[in-house]
Design a protein around this nucleic acid. Sequence first.
DNA 1: CCTTTTGCGTACCGTACGGTACGGTTCTGC
DNA 2: GCAGAACCGTACCGTACGGTACGCAAAAGG
Lengths: 219, 219
Amino acid sequence: MRADTTDMPEFSPRQNAVLEQALRLLVEGGEKALTTSGLARAANCSKESLYKWFGDREGLLAAMIAHQAAKVRTFERSGERLTADLLRDHLELFARDLLEVLAGDVSLALNRLAIGQANREGSKLGKLLLEHGRRQIDRRAMALIDQGKRAGLLRFDNADAAYHTLYGLVVSDLHVRMLLGEPGLKDNARQAEKAVAAFLTLHGTQKQSADALGVSAGR
Amino acid sequence: MRADTTDMPEFSPRQNAVLEQALRLLVEGGEKALTTSGLARAANCSKESLYKWFGDREGLLAAMIAHQAAKVRTFERSGERLTADLLRDHLELFARDLLEVLAGDVSLALNRLAIGQANREGSKLGKLLLEHGRRQIDRRAMALIDQGKRAGLLRFDNADAAYHTLYGLVVSDLHVRMLLGEPGLKDNARQAEKAVAAFLTLHGTQKQSADALGVSAGR
DNA sequence: CCTTTTGCGTACCGTACGGTACGGTTCTGC
DNA sequence: GCAGAACCGTACCGTACGGTACGCAAAAGG
């Protein structure tokens, strides 16, 4: 067992197919639909193999999280020079991607699963989900924010706090609402626009037009 | 059965005591610890009584939410004239209260319960929790924000959007993180300060000192 | 005083889960 | 071609849950 750098356990293709079925069951029917017998039936494998591969049920859940995290890769092309417009575009793209990811079926199902399991102490699922699922998108945003500061387009003391501000402006309580079963937004792009405009008002160095802040036509 | 105005079912004292025990079990051991047998044993009542009072398990959960919501009452003293400083104080008090409520044991446990149950269709728990648990605090904030606008201290198009902005600035992703098992903030008051400062920068009519925005010492 | 209601404690039932064991089959390495 | 591993399908076990039924004590009501 190596250090915790970037060693994905990387399951076999067969195991990945099984994990895919597991995710499907979880998305379709929630935690109660994800039983060992049901998964074995759906994936055409034996329960014995499940226990051999993943240890026990919690190991299976952890493997599902790792498997899903491995699928979501975020590109990091940060070569170009930043202008104010470019920064805004990238921030809005990030915001849209964030909203899309959070509203995804699999993401919601896994978060519900981990949250439902987060009461008793020995539940590493929550931590696992935060680390694996969030690290990618966090790093992308932090890189973008840092770049904006180095380019003189953003100002802040604490990059972490600035990122949390951006996150809050973009997501607000939408994530929890969706986790509780409410439908998502009708227009992610509009929400992204307004959130980024507010963020630039707070942390941008250039005067903002404040158009998208609240002085536009109907809601 | 009347209209859905404000008619709490209002359980008997005995039933309230049972619901209190149910909440205790839920907080201590999560959903899996809240079994009918366990509750009957803990509350010194019979399973038959449980089913007679609450119908079935979901009815019990709904009753728990209603019972908890009935305990959290928010005061609405809105007589005094608002000044800028007073508005800021009230906003910060609201933010601190919001953070405190969200971080509460019972709130977290009930949210985890409803979220874990929110996958399959027939789960009214999520909606119930949002309506009962959120309505009080939402109305308090909306009243405050409206008052601020009427006093000429705030400007915005859409009070709802402005409230969501405030909520996002205060809470960010903290709620989800706590639901996943992370510990809460060390200093709610500081977070409330910074969030309200940012909110006033966005929607206040007076120049903000920007002191608490990010140019202060330490993280 | 007697009757009716309410509710406690316990036992019970059907079901479904997590986890294990076993026989038979396919795949793999030599 | 053959031995051994991997694996599938199924059966099995213990347990624990949701929900129901029953017997009996205590309170409510007349």
